[in-house]
Amino acid sequence: MTISQVGAYPLSKGIKILTINGKQATSGTTLIKRGFAHMQKHGVIMDVTNAEQAQIAEDAGAVAVMVLDKLPFDVRHAGGVARTASVKVIQAVLDSVSIPIMAKCRIGHFSEASILEEIGVDMIDESEVLSPADEIRHIWKWNYTTPFVNGAKNLGEALRRIEEGAAMIRTKGEPGTGDVSQAVTHIRMVNNEIRKLKGIYDNNDDQELIKISREIQSSLEIVKETGRLGRLPVVNFAAGGISTPADAALLMNLGCDGIFVGSGIFKAEDPLERAKAVVIATTYHDDPKTVLDAQKMIDEKKSMLGLDTKNLDLRMQERGPTI
């Protein structure tokens, strides 16, 4: 197999078996869910709040759009409770673009997730950008046919989310700030932990692997698989604070499989050109000449001013259950 299926829950209720003319077709399998995430690789997923923005994103080369009620920057300014987007906005986006559509639900809010599955979004983001609905538990994502993406700032969080059924992981970063430093911290943390784990796996040191599995509260099976692969068993994207083509290239060069851009595009004054430039820089991240061409397409005076991540009223990465 070219995709790892380790960590799959054998009793997943999200698996649906249909018989058509005597032939069986199975939906919601781990391969179909993780496979969907693999199709997003090397691409840019853009946050949008209405159908017009979704159209701009698609025309600029977004691989998918993420629908939310307010961009993370506006969530910070509005305060109050951030919930899933209006059904009619999501429906309008579904009716206007041909690329996949994702939407966010609150952490632990399995009823919002069911609504999103019922509307027909292609992937659900159980996101710390919205106000967490459960401080103890995340959603048990194996109950859904629709795949999920979750944020993680270290290896333990990533593997625990995968074992709950996430088909894709992204860094948490600090969304809406225009500052990539937290996303960089998170991917470096995951990379370093995996590098260490791979060394231990390659040495066949089972005692140490068991110790790590206990420390990060993940099964030994998935800890071993991560060591064997030398990477997460699912696709890992960068998210949180990406604003320029250079930011996208930086995170791709640190080993991310693709990019989420939130406020960075539609809070800038040149969204269409900037969106295109981020797409080009993501694909050609390791080619400085092409990244320069992409960076030339934007004007730094039009970037979002952003927020200092050291003095935030709200640290989104700290929200939700600790386990």
Binding site: K23, Q24, A25, T26, S27, G28, I32, G35, P100, G120
Partner: peptide
């Protein structure tokens, strides 16, 4: 259909003996 309807199923493909597992994603 959309991702919810994505599926896997066995296929008959000419030039290939026995069934082939088809992975259909959107």
């Amino acid at each position: 259909g959309r991702q919810y309807d994505s599926f896997e199923s066995n296929l008959e493909i000419s030039g290939i003996e026995n069934d082939f597992r088809g992975i259909f994603i959107r």
